[in-house]
Computed example of a mutant assay.
Amino acid sequence: MLQAKIPPSKTIKSIKRNISGVLLLDKPYGISSNKAVQIAKRIFSAAKCGHTGTLDPMATGLLPLCFGEATKFSSVLLGANKTYEATLRLGFISTTGDAEGEISQFTANAGNPTPSQCEQVLKCFIGRIRQVPPMYSALKHQGKPLYVYARNNKVIERPAREVLIHDIQIKSLIDNELQLHIECGTGTYIRTLAEDIGRALGCGGAYLTQLRRTTIDSFDLFQAQALSTLEAMDTMDRDDCLLPVDCLLQEFPAVILNESAALHIRQGRIISNPPDVHSMPEGNIVRLYDHQQQFLGLGEITDKQKIAAKRLLVNP
């Protein structure tokens, strides 16, 4: 008796939505920024999603994610100022600079510094300082991230780089556990800062036991959503958590175009003499809106006070 052939089952792919906006995510402990992107992308059934700068797996806190058209502007936050709450364990060192590495005590006689000693030392780290990037970082050497070499016990020479520390405040000091509030500029490695502070305090070193990012530029952790909260929402409430694309671009002045100029800029044509740009120097970047206040994208002031499209939304 011939047996009927059963066709192989086909995997039903979920329909991806072309949504655009910015999600302020409270990244949980233990997952990479890329993993957080993939989870958020699944939750929103989004066709396109990316982050604006990584947080280490052991770090938690504010991680803005860009969906759809917002990904065109995700690099804007890479140079933004950031704020962290960091907990340092003094007198111990870690192979990675944080709790993920192999921990060893520097010396049993390092002692615990007083609050006044900490305040004096921390003053030396405010302003422009030089840092040697950690081996466990995503900086690349000959096309490979440094952490790849570190995992193979290879040390690559790294030149010191200048970073800006705006402020450091002591939140608490209990025995050898120092909690700090840190406001810093782009490119600052808090793990390296922790190690340097530990050495400057005479403790031989320190490592991060906790790190939480609380602000990026004007965005605050209080505005952020947890992945578990988003998972429990219905689609409409979840989409309401997305901020508009132009929230990333508030540093640029806004220019309102009339109906004709908006059409021309969408067609890639240079528009001339908009009234809002008479006093703007050549090379300035501006936010462009149509006569209905709809965000179109970014433009650039050219010679003779004209505007050329720089980066526009596909479907504003």
Rank of each mutant, 00 (worst) to 15 (best):
S172K: 03
A108P: 04
D167K: 13
Q179F: 00
L122R: 11
I174W: 00
G101K: 04
F92A: 11
Y136L: 08
K140D: 04
L146F: 01
C184Q: 03
E157C: 02
N112K: 12
R128K: 13
N153H: 12
Q105E: 15
I156A: 06
S116M: 12
D175M: 04
E183F: 02
V155L: 07
Y136T: 05
P159I: 08
A108Q: 14
S116L: 13
C184M: 01
P134E: 09
P133S: 10
V132I: 15
G101Q: 05
A150Q: 07
S116R: 11
A110C: 14
V155N: 04
H141S: 12
S137W: 02
A150D: 06
Q142N: 15
Q131K: 12
S172A: 14
K171F: 00
E177L: 07
V155G: 00
I174D: 13
I168F: 03
Q105R: 15
G91H: 08
T107G: 08
S104G: 01
A99E: 03
T95A: 08
G143Y: 06
P113I: 12
T107Y: 01
A150E: 04
K140F: 01
P115I: 12
L146R: 08
R130T: 15
A160S: 15
T95Y: 05
A110Y: 10
G143C: 03
P133H: 07
N152K: 15
H181W: 04
N153A: 15
Y136Q: 08
T96C: 09
K144R: 15
K154P: 00
I93L: 10
T107L: 05
G101S: 09
L122T: 11
F106E: 02
L173G: 06
V132H: 09
S94T: 13
I182D: 04
L178T: 08
Q169M: 01
R151D: 04
S172P: 06
G127C: 06
K140P: 06
M135F: 03
A110K: 09
G185F: 01
N109P: 00
C184H: 03
P113C: 11
R151P: 05
P145W: 02
K140R: 13
N152F: 00
T95N: 08
F92T: 12
I126E: 15
R128Q: 12
R130K: 14
Q169T: 11
L122P: 14
Q120M: 14
A108T: 10
A150C: 07
R161P: 00
K140Q: 14
Y147W: 06
A99M: 09
G97A: 11
Q105G: 04
R151E: 07
E177P: 00
Q169V: 04
D167L: 07
E100A: 13
N153V: 02
P133N: 11
I165S: 07
R158H: 02
Q117F: 05
I126G: 09
P133D: 08
N112T: 10
G97K: 06
E100S: 14
T114D: 06
Q117S: 15
R151M: 05
E162K: 11
T96W: 02
R130Y: 10
I170Q: 05
A150K: 10
I103M: 00
I129H: 09
P145H: 05
N152A: 13
Q131F: 07
Q142H: 13
R128N: 13
C118N: 06
L164E: 12
K144G: 05
N109S: 14
Q179P: 00
G97F: 03
M135S: 10
P134N: 11
C124S: 15
F106A: 09
F92E: 11
I126N: 09
D167I: 00
R128M: 05
